[in-house]
């Protein structure tokens, strides 16, 4: 019978990504309830030394595939490697991060393992010995409680939502052969964006702008606030469609669905599709001139005023507080 709660650890450029620790901590919690072990799969090149760090967050065993063919990440190579070790060891639960890479990998794994998966979950628990995954649907307009009848029971976890808990284990290392064939895809180039830019999907704090920002140059004061807060800058569909901001920064039903600790909506009226994409944020601040804007119905703190006056003043106040 399938046994063990497993995660796929995500690393990039030789460093584990934060979502890996969120996965490990969550898997530990589930495994303790089931009385099972936590396993992690780690794929890449020259990454064996990263395995110990997973032990710190409760991983009992790390299955490592170390090969130049696994760097950089391709769907093809990583899905082949992970599917192989999963089939050989038959875990009952497999958790993957719902990051860009994790979404790609996990969906391919569903195909290779012929199972089911709850995508982008915001909570997971054990009910009657089985995984119960809670996930937003319709970009958060409703939620679904998902059970997976296939094996392993797969879920991808939304980054930045699950708590990281230290729980040191020795983390035994088990090397395995990835069993790769001729590669079907390769990465020709990685075009990195400016260093220090935080992706909205992974940010703790997002400063977001909409039509009320009035143009690309209006985002300057949002960038300044974001820099002080260590925040990502997001945008509404209106701002993206107007060409003021890049598509990857769009928050909403046809963009990214986000759950930061703090979401500061500036000049965003709050179309249903935008509200859906950010309503699971812990705290929402809205700054808008129009007191009737729907965004205020979702905001914990609302400021009815000109954002071009409020935002710079607020940036100054935050600077004072953080000094």
């Amino acid at each position: 019978m399938a046994k063990g709660v497993w995660i796929v650890a995500e690393q990039r450029d030789g460093a584990l990504r934060k979502v890996s620790f969120e996965l490990a901590s969550t898997a530990r919690k589930l495994a303790d309830q089931l009385g099972e072990e936590v396993g992690a799969v780690l794929c890449g090149s020259g990454i064996e030394a990263l395995a110990a760090a997973l032990g710190k967050y409760g991983v009992d065993k790390v299955f490592v595939a170390d090969s130049p063919a696994l760097e950089p990440y391709t769907t093809d190579a990583h899905a082949t490697a992970v599917a192989k070790v999963v089939k050989e060891n038959d875990p009952s639960i497999l958790l993957v991060g719902a990051s860009a890479q994790g979404k790609d990998l996990s969906a391919a794994l569903v195909g290779k393992l012929a199972t089911g998966m709850a995508t982008d979950c915001t909570d997971v628990k054990i009910a009657d010995g089985k995984l119960l995954a809670i996930r937003p649907m319709y970009a958060g307009k409703c939620f679904g409680e998902v059970v997976v009848t296939g094996t392993p029971q797969m879920a991808s976890l939304r980054p930045n939502v699950f708590t990281i808990v230290e729980n040191a284990k020795a983390a035994a290392i088990v090397k395995f052969d990835a069993g790769l064939g001729e590669p079907k895809t390769k990465v020709l180039e990685v075009q990195k964006e400016a260093a220090g830019k935080i992706d909205v999907a992974e940010a703790n704090v997002i400063v977001s702008g909409g039509r009320g920002v009035k143009g690309p140059e209006g985002f300057g004061i949002l960038e300044e606030l974001a820099a002080v807060l260590g925040a990502a800058v997001g945008a509404s569909r209106a701002a993206v469609d107007a060409g003021w901001r890049a598509q990857i920064d769009q928050v909403g039903q046809t963009g990214k669905v986000v759950s930061p600790n703090l979401y500061i909506a500036c000049g965003i009226s709050g179309a249903i599709q935008h509200l859906a994409g950010m309503s699971s944020s812990k705290y929402i601040v809205a700054v808008n001139k129009d007191a009737e804007a729907p965004i205020f119905a979702r905001a914990d703190y609302g400021v009815v005023d000109d954002l071009f006056k409020v935002v710079p003043a607020f940036t100054g106040e935050v600077k004072k507080l953080l000094a």
Binding site: A114, A118, K141, E145, V148, G150, V303
Partner: peptide, 22 residues
């Protein structure tokens, strides 16, 4: 043959009313 199913749909958790700062 589905390998997963939504056992239950629920509305999103209600947000407590916010305050307007003045």
């Amino acid at each position: 043959e589905s390998k997963s199913k939504v056992a239950k749909f629920t509305p999103p958790p209600a947000r407590p009313p916010g305050k307007i700062i003045c």
